[in-house]
């Protein structure tokens, strides 16, 4: 072949490199501009509440994604075990997404509401206490470490900059909402207003210790909302075929 032309002519070589890299770049970048078509039209998706967002940060910090996926693939065995396959729309507010690629533990995409808060708390502190065959590490320190989320507004604002549709109100009330969700009906906060901002959020004390808001509270609040937002009674699979 006549690759001599590339090897002996620096201008041609440079142009060829530009063309090759452009193709690679376009393949990766162009689909990002068509995301709106990728997201299925569903009802119920909302950005994470400040407490859930804090829990999500802990989920990432502790590397939960290394053993747990959050993506139910459209296969019969997965759908029969975990529930409806995950939709693109369900992770549209994820930065970064937690789909994962390894399942040492089960998929968590629809774990919300499957177990009680008390079970989650016990399971985090000592997984073998409730699931004898579990190989999950224990995380008792989460229950002790009080969570400070004074910078909740800044977190939400940052997420809004990358496209998560937090409203002005949600950003302004972030610190307040953080406490309202963790205290629930037992607290002073306006629970109804909070639930209007974040429908379907689980409220109340999550870790069995109402005295303080711990990292475990935040993590469980996040787990309890996973996969619960989309209203699948109004979902039309024919319109979301991929």
């Amino acid at each position: 072949m006549k690759h001599e032309i590339f090897e002996t002519n620096v201008i041609v070589l440079a142009l060829a490199i530009v063309v090759t890299i452009s193709i690679g770049g376009l393949v990766q970048i162009v689909p990002l501009y068509t995301m709106e078509q990728t997201f299925e039209k569903v009802e119920g998706m909302r950005p994470y509440s400040p407490l859930e967002q804090a829990g999500r940060n802990i989920y990432i910090r502790e590397g939960c994604y290394t053993c747990h996926s959050q993506q139910i693939r459209p296969f019969r065995d997965e759908v029969e075990r975990y529930g409806h396959y995950s939709l693109a729309a369900e992770s549209m507010y994820d930065h970064p997404f937690q789909w994962g690629s390894k399942r040492t533990g089960p998929d968590l995409a629809r774990v919300g509401g499957k177990y009680s808060n008390a079970w989650h708390a016990e399971h985090m502190i000592d997984p073998r206490a409730v699931v004898p065959e579990s190989v999950m590490p224990h995380y008792p320190f989460l229950a002790e470490k009080e969570l400070n989320f004074d910078d909740a507004s800044a977190h939400l604002k940052t997420l809004a900059m990358v496209g998560v549709p937090y409203s002005e109100e949600q950003i302004a009330k972030a610190v307040e909402d953080f406490t309202v969700q963790a205290q629930g009906e037992d607290g002073e906060g306006d629970v109804d207003a909070f639930l209007a901002r974040y429908p379907k959020a689980a409220i109340g004390d999550f870790d069995g210790n109402p005295e303080k808001i711990t990292e475990l509270d935040a993590l469980i609040s996040y787990l309890q909302m996973l996969g619960t937002l989309v209203d699948f009674t109004k979902f039309k699979p024919e319109l979301a075929r991929r």
Partner: peptide, 10 residues
């Protein structure tokens, strides 16, 4: 369609 395939299978 992988989702369509699943629908049919289910």
């Amino acid at each position: 369609s992988s989702r369509g395939d699943l629908d049919n299978q289910m």
